[in-house]
């Protein structure tokens, strides 16, 4: 799950969409489904955290 907290929003969001699709797509063995579910929950939390906690950063270059 540590890798999830290093994901960019775009990557986490795409991974979340894929996870939901996989989970909804069919009859997975229960243990696989549980693994996917836990990963999806962590991805959703990562996305929400990024969206709600972000503060706009501004970097100003020197005018040479």
């Amino acid at each position: 799950m540590n890798d999830i907290n290093a994901l960019s929003f775009e990557d986490a969001y795409k991974a979340l969409q894929e996870t939901v699709e996989q989970l909804e797509s069919g009859e997975l063995p229960l243990n696989e489904a549980m693994t996917l579910y836990e990963r999806g929950k962590a991805l959703a939390a990562r996305c929400q955290q990024l969206l709600t906690a972000a503060e706009l950063r501004v970097q100003q270059l020197n005018e040479t």
Binding site: V20, L23, E24, G40, A44
Partner: peptide, 11 residues
């Protein structure tokens, strides 16, 4: 994201 989050729970 919240919709996807609840879709996980539902599925």
């Amino acid at each position: 994201v919240r919709y996807l989050d609840s879709a996980l729970d539902e599925s």
